[in-house]
Amino acid sequence: MPIICVEGPPAVGKTTVSLELEDTYSCYTIPAVNLKTLQLHDMGLMGWQELCEEQMERWELAVRKSAEHAVVVLDGDIFWPLFLCGFINSPYKTQINDMFQQAFMEKKLGIPDRYFYLYASEQTLRRRAVTTLSPSITYTTALEDLFYEHRGFYRRFSRAFPGSVYEIQAAHERKAAQQIMKNIPSFPWDRGNIEKFQCIKQHSLRNIRESLD
């Protein structure tokens, strides 16, 4: 059965929509990492490796549960550390890139069957961000630029691979969940597509760095 990913900028409501899918439609939800527990700027290479391993665990669980549930929901992209290390300009960008490359080639990570990208107005994101963002990430103009670049990446990914991304305005979790369920992808899956992975790998770090220059 399909593995989907609910994605979007910080504070847009990914977890709320994911839980709505679980509560209303009996989807199996795999939660995201709690950013508030991470000391991002002080994290060494071992910490980043643990994040990669955690994403591998999330993916392994998603694949296993897809045999038991009609829909499996990833709350947040398993490739988010690639974006994150670019955002904070981690000195370990190359190593992190290599970690994900190896995991993907070993089929310990894969491409979700469809991304559902939630978006909201700048004003809404700013208001929500005050209480939901990690203490290590301050809401600034640079972060607003990142929001736009983040959405732009998924739009480019959708143009390169039509049908891979479906955009939804995050106005209300019930309506968003309804839209997602109406647009669940059908078989066959394409989780090991190396071209899709290369697109994610090549653009995620570069685009974030450019948005902050």
Rank of each mutant, 00 (worst) to 15 (best):
P91T: 10
L45H: 10
V17W: 08
Q55E: 03
L143S: 06
E57A: 13
T131I: 09
Q202P: 00
M99Q: 09
P91F: 02
E7A: 07
D98S: 12
M56L: 02
K14Y: 03
Y148L: 06
F100H: 11
Y166G: 01
Q49H: 14
M181E: 06
F100M: 00
H41R: 14
G8D: 01
Q39F: 14
Y139C: 04
E149G: 03
V63Y: 00
L45P: 10
G152R: 08
F157I: 01
M46K: 10
T29M: 08
L82T: 03
Y115P: 10
Q101A: 04
F87T: 12
Q101D: 12
I111V: 14
P9T: 08
Q39S: 15
Q49Y: 15
C85W: 04
L21Y: 04
Y148T: 08
F100W: 09
R114V: 02
L19W: 02
W189Q: 09
A176T: 10
P185H: 07
K107Q: 13
A32K: 08
A176I: 07
Y166K: 13
T16R: 02
K108I: 00
I78V: 15
E195F: 01
S90K: 13
F153S: 00
L21Q: 06
L35W: 06
K175C: 10
R127T: 15
K108H: 07
M99N: 06
L61V: 00
K175Y: 15
G192A: 10
M99L: 14
Q123K: 12
